[in-house]
Design a protein around this nucleic acid. Structure first.
Lengths: 157, 157
DNA sequence: TATTGTTATACTCTATAACTATA
DNA sequence: TATAGTTATAGAGTATAACAATA
């Protein structure tokens, strides 16, 4: 008989808990996005662009959406083809790109907004708005704490 | 000037908060797994198999690891090729497969366990063990609440 | 006829490196 | 020489459908 491995149970895994929570949540949004032929990542880009007036540059957008630059490049090309965003170059630095929603892109986000908010509201209603706010705060803190300077034997990150 | 879209700010997005928390956490584990040429999903399968004595069947394992059956099939084929798991058929129902770690697979999990636990302990130390336990409980509850019966206008899920 | 699991297909993302253009 | 962004490449997962074998 194999000896038990000294390790916390799989069910107690933090990454799994985060994954399940995310999948459960996203499933509702994905249903919505699929109607407009949008992937989750494309939606992240559109959402980010819609969330502020100024244009984004690629690097900035990558950081903001937690996507890699090559992924952004492809997504941006796709959304550009579909007329949802425009790329313009910056006058004083021709390497940089300015990314912005087109009127059509903005209209799309605006069209999806009510259903997206409805999903959110439903989650808040079922789970509790206060609890959800607390949870979000803890998640942010965890990301910051763990992202910055966790040190493990043999690893310095 | 475009009118603002009635939608919560991108930064307040629950899926983004979950994603960032997960990515920050997983980055540490991925560093560990990469040394053994394991993807995150392969590790989930190994972890699940290591977590109990009885063999898993494919459907069961898919549910447990939050992977789709086709993904499991490929992962299992890969781990089988590497001699980390074995597939045997069930006597009374030849459609079913029984999946188990080999001695070598068990040894691999056992070898990675200490570092994995060290990462966990470090997270607990920095974030707080109690806070982490609370967070995990809330995540489980969110997954359950949202996964089961969230109803949104036009969608019944 | 329903179920378990595999295979096929198309698409997308991840991750890294190489490359182009510009600064 | 360094930086911003794109392109190339390899690998893998997602999702759906079709299929084979078995019940």
């Amino acid at each position: 008989m194999a000896q038990p491995i000294p390790m916390r149970p799989f069910t107690d895994s933090l990454p799994m808990a985060l994954l399940r929570a995310r999948e459960s949540t996203m499933q509702h949004f994905r249903t919505l996005l699929a109607k407009s032929e949008l992937t989750e990542q494309q939606w992240r880009v559109l959402r980010a662009l819609a969330s502020r007036q100024e244009a984004y540059e690629v690097t900035e957008l990558a950081e903001r959406t937690a996507l890699l630059a090559p992924s952004i490049s492809r997504i941006v090309a796709n959304l550009d083809d579909r007329g949802l965003i425009v790329r313009t170059t910056v006058a004083h630095d021709q390497r940089r790109a300015r990314l912005q929603l087109t009127r059509s892109g903005r209209a799309l986000v605006r069209r999806l907004a009510p259903e997206s908010e409805a999903i959110y509201n439903s989650i808040e209603e079922h789970f509790g708005a206060d609890r959800l706010a607390d949870l979000m705060a803890e998640l942010k803190d965890l990301a910051e704490t763990v992202g910055h300077k966790i040190t493990v034997e043999g690893e310095v990150s």
